[in-house]
């Protein structure tokens, strides 16, 4: 599951632009992950310029 750290997002939309399944909702100052749609690919975690997004996957799974 992708997690959003509270109060740190800059709402720049970079994660939205790379999400392959359109699972991120972003408004003026509000971001949410649509968990039913999310495929846990972690691309959003990688691209975020300020590390607001994180994955709750254990490290060994991430390295597969």
């Amino acid at each position: 599951m992708i997690l959003v750290k509270d109060n740190r997002c800059d709402f720049c939309g970079t994660c939205v632009a790379v999400c392959p399944v359109d699972a991120i909702e972003l408004r003026e100052a509000d971001i949410s992950i649509i968990h039913d749609t999310c495929i846990d690919c972690d691309i959003c975690v990688w691209v975020c310029p300020i590390k607001v997004l994180s994955s709750d996957k254990p490290e060994e799974v991430k390295n597969d």
Partner: peptide, 10 residues
């Protein structure tokens, strides 16, 4: 949707 390699993070 843009590929990760085609997106710069700024």
């Amino acid at each position: 949707a843009t590929k990760l390699k085609d997106m710069d993070s700024g």
